[in-house]
Design a protein around this nucleic acid. Structure first.
Lengths: 209, 209, 209, 209
DNA sequence: GATGAATGAGTATTCATTCAT
DNA sequence: TATGAATGAATACTCATTCAT
């Protein structure tokens, strides 16, 4: 391992250290109430150091979303490549993948919608923004392909495949957001798993040819 | 009409005037970027006056969510009371109601998820918080009843009726959020109506007994 | 006096109050070392209030230069209009005017050269910048006219009149800057008056036709 | 050459390398906007290294002024020693020397007035401050001697020789500062050379016995 | 000597909220 | 009631300087 590479690795470790702290703080307080000072303290670093690794608060925040998008991408790609499975098995695998994405980082998924604010987007670097767009585009695309192939094989009803991938993603996001929201506002128990189960069941039964 | 009542009416008119202005400003800039000064200007009032009608910024914001929740409540109650319709016709009416809620205030629906932040909730008065909780609980309850009756009549498959109302609401919210998000991030066209159509179709076909 | 006018007057009084404090602080510590907090304290106001009257630190600073430029302008215009005087008497009056400008605000003259920084200029509002440019252009122009008339009457040697006004101004500024600088660095006594006297004498004797 | 001396030489080379970089950066951005990081990058060194050669930013900055003061000193001393020249020829030589000083480092001359700030002076080491004071005192002294000898020979009118050297230096500085300032604020062309010419002509003609 | 990662004190600016009129 | 001037706490970000390697 060259000295260059060792340094790069060290740098990446620091980035992770900061992101882990940021995730904790953002999850606990939300974006606005979290200060860079808070995050620095959680990471046991000084505020200035954060800026050696992230351009600004928005970019640090967005990097967290990037993480989960990367995970989503990997999982979805993997499902897409499983040629040996039947269409229904793949749909099942997709469902499982989405659930794992949620478990990977339950709160960040909620926060990802912050990213929408055009004010926030302005503060992101070209590269970061492009990667975010690319990953979400690509993941959705792969989901769409899973449906397309199912339709081509005559396993699924054709209901405009592009929309199907959007719907499964929004169904998933919507249920997660809604259950979290109930949990916070009403202090209800969290029925997420159960609700997701029914939701997916409904969704898939509607596809049956 | 007594003098007391006239005053009360006048007061309510002012509240509405402020809320209309607030909605415009929040919709244009989002919660954080909107200042009380902005809203006062839009309402052609002074900043101080806003505080005669709303305890603080969070409460003014939450009042807007209350407005749409009230509208949702009225519409859903109305659907519930339509005893003459078949289960499928009522489901259709519910779908239409939800779409109207979206049109009533497209952006506020998105913003309603702000309310989740426990930091925000702390700043709300008891009464306001209770009404918000009551309205959402009640609206969901009514939706659930629609499904229950459909199941009782043997028109719908039983898939745990409480979850069904949650699912239709999260499906709806999820699609709206997701389409808005695509529109902002990727500058795509807005396929909301089309996607919603397919989503509801999938959802309902999964219910067919 | 209308209510509008009274308010305007009150506002102007506040601006002056802040400028007086700012002058004291900037003079004592220089631009960079002076904080808005310092100035607010000196003015017995809160930091936020400063921003109700001045867009930012640079603009507050520049406003001080504006003050002396206005005074310079008034004095020079007055000299220009004195038709009854001989060319030499007017030159004398000009010399006295410049000295009074110095006494009006000895330290700000030094600071005025800060204004040059293009970084500073970027932060100034259009109007302020224009007025500064206009006043300095106009004052120089009037000085030039004084020389032109002296040359036309055959009282002064023609040495390119535009440059003459520049020279008298730079001679004056240079002497002031240099004497202040000696005073600070060497803790010398201040020979300003004496040096200015000889400088003007040299300058004028070189003009004798 | 001993090993000690070689090291000393090497050390001096590094100092020069840093100063050249610093001059470039300060000239382009001004003192405040220039960062030690900028200068380090320009010098192709690390920030830490700068501190091995200069106590702090202020001292690095002051060292640049020292450089031009040394050059001024050499040039003026040389003029003083030219015994073969007439008083008027020496005055001419002095004029040329000053112009060369300007060309040696046009922008630093302007910045030299930063040095006045007593806050800056506090950060300088004893030695540096003393050398700066010594050089300026001595250069001015030599200029004064040139005038004294001219007066003694009956070539110049006696107008207090100490002040004469101050005046020629402030005339020069004032013109340079003023022309630069016009150039930046009004985006005028730069008439420096022409204005300097008239200024010196006026100055010297006032000396004619 | 040289490095450059880390520091953390320092500050301009914003804006929700108050309160004297 | 309504006003809007004044408040002052809060915070992202910078950068001169240090020090372990």
């Amino acid at each position: 391992m060259g000295i260059q590479e060792r340094k790069e690795r060290e740098r990446e470790r620091r980035r992770q250290q900061i992101m882990v702290a940021a995730k904790r703080v953002f999850s606990a307080k939300g974006f606005t109430k979290s200060t860079m000072e808070d995050i620095a303290q959680e990471a046991e670093l000084s505020p200035g150091t954060l800026y050696l690794y992230f351009k600004n608060k928005d970019e640090l925040y967005a990097s967290l979303s990037l993480r989960i998008l990367r995970y989503l991408h990997i999982r979805v790609e993997h499902v897409k490549k499983e040629n040996m499975l039947t269409s229904w098995q793949r749909l099942d695998a997709l469902k499982k993948a989405l659930y794992d994405v949620y478990e990977f980082d339950p709160l960040i998924l909620i926060n990802m919608f912050h990213l929408q604010s055009s004010e926030t987007l302005k503060n992101l670097s070209e590269d970061l923004l492009r990667e975010i767009q690319e990953l979400s585009r690509s993941s959705l695309g792969s989901m769409a392909e899973i449906f397309e192939e199912g339709i081509a094989k005559g396993d699924f009803i054709d209901r405009h495949p592009m929309a199907l991938s959007d719907i499964i993603w929004s169904l998933f996001s919507g249920v997660v957001l809604w259950e979290e929201s109930k949990r916070i506002i009403n202090k209800d128990k969290n029925y997420l798993k159960q609700t997701l189960e029914v939701a997916f069941e409904l969704f898939t039964s509607g596809l049956r040819a």
